[in-house]
Simulated scan of single mutants.
Amino acid sequence: MLNRQNPRVSVVIPTLNEAANLRHVLPLLSHDYELVLVDGGSVDGTIDAAREIRGDIRIIKQTRKGKGNALACGFEAATGDIIVMFDADGSADAAEIPRFVEALIAGADFAKGSRFCEGGGSHDITPLRRAGNGGLHLVANTLFGTRFSDLCYGYNAFWRDLVPVLDLPVVDQPGSEGMMLWGDGFEIETIINCRFAEASVRIEEVPSVELARIYGQSNLRTFSDGFRVLRTLMTERVRARHIKRKSIVRPLRESIDARTDMDLEFEALESYNEVLELRERTA
């Protein structure tokens, strides 16, 4: 049973060649937190650096590729009452974690970080990315009836007992060589927002200031990532409609068949074609 008055916090940190950044980031995280580092095959000494800085850190190796799989592995390994999603590049301010925890203790199920609500901000986002994010969260709000002010931000926290609601790919499910399952990639943050919204959990936005990455270059690509988020929104909306229309009880995670990006895209295309056919018949 979760301790909702004095919860234990697990901080899940996906990494891929972040040794230099971890030397700045890990000392800022409280020793009261369980730290779960999920590594994607770093070759720069990330794991050694983490163990040197924090002897109590738990090291997990992700089972497939992608940030989504890394987070899913971390969610499964975490033992705390609250899970905090935390980037290793220095962009997340560790001092804000109590703010997320307070929102959850006050009654939220999902504390969603926002750079664009009052008190939030960013030292890293470009005007083009800001405009794109604004358009994307407008689409999300229209499709899911939400009031998000910031869709594409990965600093979030939620109660650990809600992990099954996310219905993520089973971590020990092998993917085809070189292929990730739906939810394994950078679409994970959008998927989490969509699935919590569809599940009607209590969502509260928490103001957060995004810091600049300390070392290295971001893997974000404005246009390709923007289209990926848009595709994710449409695909997740189709998924939600299918579940509602068929009144399907959410299955156990172990029973879910693995689906790839292509599978989900075909489902979205089939649904779109059904709409077109219906319009032609009624025209």
Score class of each variant (00 low, 15 high):
Asp81Val: 05
Arg51Cys: 09
Ala77Asn: 08
Arg58Gly: 02
Thr79Gln: 12
Ile60Thr: 03
Asp56Glu: 15
Glu76Phe: 10
Met85Tyr: 08
Gly74Arg: 02
Gly74Ile: 03
Asp81Gly: 06
Ala49Phe: 00
Ala78Ser: 11
Cys73Pro: 10
Ala49Trp: 00
Ala49Pro: 00
Gln62Val: 01
Ala49Tyr: 00
Glu52His: 06
Ile57Ala: 01
Lys67Gln: 10
Phe86Asp: 05
Ile83Ala: 02
Ile82Tyr: 03
Gly74Gln: 05
Ile53Tyr: 06
Ala88Lys: 06
Gly55Cys: 13
Met85Pro: 08
Ala72Thr: 14
Phe75Thr: 08
Ile53Trp: 02
Asp81Glu: 09
Arg51Phe: 05
Thr63Ala: 01
Gly68Thr: 09
Ile82His: 06
Ile53Leu: 13
Asp87Pro: 06
Asp56Cys: 13
Ala77Lys: 10
Arg58Asn: 10
Ile82Cys: 07
Asp81Tyr: 05
Ile82Met: 08
Gly74Pro: 03
Ile60Lys: 09
Ala70Pro: 13
Arg54Met: 04
Gly80Asn: 12
Ala77Thr: 10
Ala88His: 08
Ala49Val: 00
Arg64Phe: 12
Glu76Thr: 14
Gln62Arg: 08
Ala72Tyr: 02
Cys73Gly: 08
Arg58Asp: 04
Glu76Val: 14
Cys73Thr: 07
Ala49Met: 01
Glu76His: 15
Ala50Gly: 01
Ile59Trp: 06
Arg64Pro: 14
